[in-house]
Amino acid sequence: MTQTPSFRDVEQLSAYLDGQLKPSEIARLESRLQADPALASVLKDLRQARGILRQLPQRRAPRNFTLTPKMVGLKPPLPRTYPVFRFATVLATLLLFFTFATNFMAPRLVRTAAPFPYGVGGYGGGGGGEPELSMEAAPEEPAAPALEAPAAKEPAIEEPAAPALPVPAPTEMAPSADDSARIEPTLGPSEKSGVQGAPTGEPFAQQAEPDQALQTQPPKPLVSVTLQLVLVGIAILSGLIALILRYTAIRKWRAKAK
């Protein structure tokens, strides 16, 4: 009986060609092949296709595909001391920056802490915003007290109607127009000293003393220069040692690879 072979039959034939069938399957298939020419024809087709594929020439590789240490990302074995020196360099550098930052910030912190009690005292309700101005004015213009007298007079010259200085009783200065006249000069950027200059008299005199004291004494750095120099030395020295260690290790490794 001859009929078109099923895919299962073709699969069996393909496996038969490659010697992948069990002996019992081989015997059964061979008997079918003898009886079924269509099956035998398919087997020949498959054998032919396989034979043609095997005709393909094997090419030589166009180049060597060997790997280099660089390709596989291999790194030279560095000495055990290398990370120690590297860490020392990083640590010393960080500490050095920290000391610079500390020395830079310290005088500012000291000065900003000092004017607070004096700046707040003068203006009652308006004092909320004023200390900030006085904080800025203190370090930038240490000579402010010297200029306070003329600065204080300016509002009086511009607006003679506002008797800011001569008024003896500060409690009577309630009208809002007067307030604005007094606050304006204090908020003006060119009149920072006016904040301190407006309340002439004792409070101003008290404020002048600590400022002058700060000005006459040069700020003393919190971290000594010697320590900074030591840190610089450690950073440079350990960095150099680390570099030399690395360089020698790489040279040795490359020489060995060659």
Partner: peptide
């Protein structure tokens, strides 16, 4: 593998 190989051989035979 068996199935793919069979199909591939049949198609190749046809193409060739």
């Amino acid at each position: 593998i068996k199935s793919r190989l069979t199909r591939a051989r049949l198609r190749l035979r046809e193409c060739l």
